[in-house]
Every structure is written in C-alpha cells, then in structure tokens.
C-alpha cells in the first residue's frame, strides 16, 4: 500500500490542455496513472491524447467518469478557484501544483475544504507518486523512483528528487514520495503527512526533508517521538540562509530568529531523529539506524 490513493483511484486533471498541464498529463499517463478526465472551460467534448475526455467543468467530469481526485495545473490567479470547484464537485483529494498562489486565497479555501472532508496537497508542490501503484499525481520524475518500503515527505521539489534518486540507487524503494509544498499555507502539512504514513503498514521507514521557516519540523518531531516506531531520518535545507530573506519558497524565511535550521535540527535530534549534514548522508544514515 501507500498513502492518499490506490491504483483504482479515478483522477482528473484541471488545466489539462494548458502548457504545463498537457506536458505533465502525458507523463502521468505514460507512467500508468489512472486518469479518467480532464477539465478546461471551453474545451468540453474534446479528447486529450486520443483517450482522455475533456469537460468544461469538474462537475461534468465527475458526473460522467466518477473521478474522485483532481490534480490542478491552473495559473496562480485561478488556482484557489479551481480548488473550490474540485471540492464542490465532490473530489475528496485535490493536488494543487500551481506556484505563486496568493496566500490569503489559500486561507479562504481551507474552511471550505474542512467542511467537506477534502484533502488538499499543495499548492506550490510537486505532488506525490506511489511507485507500487503506478500512480503519479504531480510532476515528479518517474525514472528515479521504485516500489519499496520507504516513505518520504518534503517541502521541496528537486531536493526531494536528489534524495529519492539516492534511495533508489541504494535499493531502497518507496511507498509514497510526497512533496507538500513550500508555501506558508498548505493543505497537507508535515504533521498530516506523518499521520498518513503512520497509518500505512507498508511504510517501514521514513525520510523527512525540511527547510527553514515555520515550525512544522519541530511539531513533526514531537509526533514522531510520541507515536512512531519505524526509523525516521531527516535533512534540513537552509543553514546558510540569512534571516528575513525569502529563499525562493514563500514559506522559507527565518523571521524574528524563529524557523532556523539549527532550531529544527535540535528539535529533531532531541526526538531521536538523526539529521543528515549533507543530502548524500541521508541514505547511509537511514541504513545505519534501520535494523531489518
């Protein structure tokens, strides 16, 4: 198993005919992801890649195909609107890839999702991939993953790939590789993801890739210490980041002396989670503490 979806989950893509949407939809299809529909207003009735029906609205797509999950590739100004639409149409899982979404738009979306029991991943994230189910909801490269027992949570994109690649090369496949996104307000946070991995019996070890800003890693450390028996290792990016500067991700900022890499490392280590000094040390560290 893995988290959030199975090979049976029916997936639709909002913005499937756009530049990014069509590019990544092809890659998702090529991997074997169960994509049943696409949505682009004004393109209803068309077919994507000769096999995926396109609808004008998410509601139409859900009614015709029974889609349960949506992956959003819509420009920033319309991204929150797309999340509302997916939730309103009954999708219980929404993955928003879009980067640059205004933070207050996401603040507005959150209670609407909570009332409807909808899980949001992102925005500004690479989504997730379940190699064992050939399910990819997002933009992660498929050639670096492999099925296996390791779960991975990250706030980053390419840094995640770096570590996933190292895991796969070391023969450590993955249940789910999840990028939760680099924005301050995101749907699924570190803690939510940890709980999901904790409930997944197939995940036998866990890698957490954090970065400066906020206190999600600290809170995750408390959860791991209190609840989890499986080996967990971590890496935190941004030790050299100057305070008060936004390091690309809107959420990656040390403010008022809080959210530093040093604080996070301390919290993680005091919870018994080893923190790698370099990305290349993550896998050896995991192998060291993982008694199989």
């Amino acid at each position: 198993m893995a988290i959030f979806c199975t090979d049976q989950t029916k997936i639709l893509i909002q913005g499937i005919t756009g530049r990014d949407g069509s590019f990544h939809a092809k890659s998702m299809l090529g991997y074997g992801t169960n994509i049943v529909a696409g949505v682009t207003p004004g393109r209803g009735g068309q077919t994507f890649e000769g096999k995926v029906p396109v609808f004008d609205t998410v509601k139409d797509a859900v009614a015709a195909t029974g889609a349960e999950a949506s992956v959003i590739f819509v420009p920033p100004a319309g991204a929150a609107g797309a999340v509302f639409e997916a939730a309103d149409a009954g999708c219980k899982l929404v993955v928003c890839i879009t980067e640059g979404v205004p933070t207050l738009d996401m603040v507005k979306v959150m209670p609407y999702l909570a009332e409807r029991g909808v899980r949001l991943v992102g925005p500004n994230c690479p989504g997730f991939i379940n190699p064992g189910q050939k399910a990819k909801l997002g933009i992660m490269p498929t050639n670096i993953v492999a099925p296996g027992p390791v779960g991975l949570i990250s706030r980053s994109g390419t840094l995640t790939y770096e570590v996933v690649d190292a895991l796969t090369r070391a023969g450590l496949g993955q249940t789910t590789c999840l990028g939760i996104g680099g924005d301050p307000v995101i749907g699924t946070n570190f803690m939510d993801a940890l709980q999901a991995f904790h409930a997944d019996p197939a995940t036998q070890a866990l890698v957490m890739i954090g970065e400066i800003g906020g206190d999600a890693e600290e809170r995750a450390a408390d959860f791991v210490k209190a609840n989890m028996k499986i080996p967990v290792v971590s890496f935190i990016a941004g030790r050299t980041a100057p305070p008060g500067k936004r390091m690309g991700h809107a959420g990656a900022i040390v403010s008022g002396g809080a959210g530093t890499a040093a604080e996070k490392k301390k919290a993680l280590e005091s919870a018994g989670i080893p923190v790698a000094d370099r990305p290349a040390d993550v896998v050896p560290l995991l192998q060291q503490i993982w008694k199989r």
Partner: peptide, 28 residues
C-alpha cells in the same frame, strides 16, 4: 528568485530547496 550573500562561490541551481542545500554544502 535570488538573494545576494557575501561569499565567492556563485550558485545557479534549479529548485529552491536544492539551491539552499547547495549553499549549505558549499559552507560544509
């Protein structure tokens, strides 16, 4: 997305997390 620092190794990286990790590795 750019932030000026005061060292001598100019870094061009794809992705914010990897860019931070690269800076950290330079310091390491």
């Amino acid at each position: 997305s750019f932030v000026k620092l005061d060292g001598n190794v100019g870094c061009l990286v794809n992705g914010a997390g990897l860019a931070m990790a690269t800076m950290d590795l330079v310091q390491y």
